[in-house]
Amino acid sequence: MKKVYIIIASMVLMLSIKSNAQIVKAEIRATGLTCSMCSNAINKQLKSLPEVVNVEIDLNTNTFTVILKEGNELSPKVFKEKVEKAGFFIGSLVVTAKSNTIAQNTYIMVNDKKSNVSEIQFQVLDKGYVTEKEFKKLSKSYKNIDTYASNNEDDFHIKMIN
């Protein structure tokens, strides 16, 4: 009887843990940058994450491509915090992640695009991950999705790209 309780408790614990997608790469387009010193501030913040292998910067588009170590458990929230800590905002966040690590209770798909590949690419559509103008437009499009309007920082509404 004791074993049954242990097994049930273990199952409940495993199901209640929120896991994040194993992110392979994040492409962050930052807004508000005016010079190379601005991009340097974001670059330093991103490189301060121990999970980061490399950060590539495209100054023409203000895009930071962040390559991550395998097995990391980062969420998009970490990138938002780092960019904002540098004094800027995210205009767009496109994530490449291992498809088998997407947690349904954390990532909410807003389009029906399905993919059978090992890595998927998606854009995070929540406030703070798109421009304010884009968010207002998306809010009208996704007004029927209750979780989108609630703006819970632990839920990520995503649009599959590939």
Rank of each mutant, 00 (worst) to 15 (best):
Y5A: 14
N152R: 12
K77H: 06
E153S: 15
S19Q: 13
N105L: 12
K77I: 03
A30D: 00
P76D: 06
C35E: 09
K3T: 02
S39R: 15
S99Y: 03
T147I: 02
S48R: 02
L59R: 01
K2C: 12
L46W: 01
M160G: 10
V24I: 02
K113S: 13
T96Y: 09
V53E: 14
I102W: 04
E56C: 04
G71S: 13
L74R: 03
E70L: 05
I6T: 00
K137E: 15
D58G: 14
V94T: 01
T131N: 11
K133F: 10
K82C: 01
Y142R: 08
P50V: 00
I42C: 01
T96F: 06
I67N: 14
A26V: 03
T63K: 09
A9L: 13
I8N: 10
K77Q: 08
P50F: 10
I102A: 14
I28T: 12
T34I: 08
I108C: 12
T147S: 11
I102C: 09
A21C: 13
K69R: 05
Y142K: 12
T147E: 10
G32C: 02
N62Y: 04
T106W: 03
T101E: 02
I42H: 04
K80G: 02
S16P: 00
V110K: 10
S115Y: 15
K113I: 06
Q123P: 09
P76N: 03
